[in-house]
Simulated scan of single mutants.
Amino acid sequence: MPLLILILILLVPYLEFLVFMEVGEAVGGFNAFLATILTAVLGVYLIRLQGFEVMQRMHRNLQNGESPIEEIFHGFFLLIAGLFFLLPGFITDSIAVLLAITPVRNFLGRAIVKNIEVHYYGHGRGPRAGPGAGQGPVIDGEYRQEDESPSQLEDDRDNPDHKA
């Protein structure tokens, strides 16, 4: 995994440069530069608006006692999209535009949740599945409840009037 991240860190700027040069040849270098700046400004504005909507929905869900997990995923993907909009280049801007689309975020969020459920719960089978799932192991045993504290029991044993 660290090797994959290193390859991406080195490969993405190279690919961005190649795409920028191709776009620059097609529409002119200055126009390509303006397009990069314009997509960054408009993209961050769009992400900001959508982020406020997600925060309002999350707040509403929390007030209603509902789980905000969907909004958390939307917020995470919007954060990634905002970072991609700030990086100069057409490839990262294209990925950011995709992440800014709500159905795409829904799809990715569901895929992640399903992946977590499969890895954690084991395909819905096994000891963690069904009613009582996730409550830990069941320990069989017996117990008895004593009304007196241990210090009172010791005092009673020392007392000659105490009958055992």
Rank of each mutant, 00 (worst) to 15 (best):
I101Q: 03
I101W: 07
T102W: 00
T102L: 01
P103C: 02
P103L: 01
V104S: 02
R105W: 03
R105C: 04
N106K: 05
F107I: 00
L108P: 00
L108D: 00
G109W: 00
G109R: 02
R110K: 11
R110P: 01
R110C: 03
A111P: 01
I112G: 06
I112R: 03
I112F: 04
I112P: 00
I112Y: 02
I112A: 12
I112S: 08
V113R: 10
V113A: 05
V113M: 10
N115W: 14
I116T: 05
I116Q: 03
H119T: 06
H119D: 04
H119C: 03
Y120S: 06
Y121M: 10
Y121K: 12
G122W: 02
G122R: 13
G122K: 13
G122I: 11
H123S: 10
H123G: 04
H123T: 08
H123V: 08
H123C: 05
H123I: 07
G124E: 09
G124D: 10
G124N: 09
G124A: 07
G124Y: 09
G124M: 08
R125N: 06
R125F: 03
R125H: 06
G126F: 11
G126S: 10
G126T: 09
G126A: 09
G126I: 07
P127A: 02
P127T: 00
R128D: 08
R128W: 08
A129S: 15
A129Q: 11
A129G: 11
G130W: 04
G130V: 08
G132A: 12
A133P: 11
A133M: 13
Q135C: 05
Q135D: 07
Q135K: 13
G136L: 14
G136S: 14
P137W: 03
V138A: 12
V138M: 12
V138G: 09
I139E: 13
I139H: 14
D140M: 13
D140A: 13
G141V: 14
E142H: 15
E142Q: 14
E142M: 13
Y143L: 15
Y143N: 13
R144G: 11
R144I: 06
Q145C: 09
Q145P: 04
Q145V: 15
Q145M: 11
D147T: 09
D147P: 01
E148P: 00
E148W: 07
E148L: 15
E148A: 15
E148G: 04
S149I: 14
S149M: 11
S149C: 07
P150H: 09
S151P: 05
Q152I: 12
Q152R: 15
L153W: 03
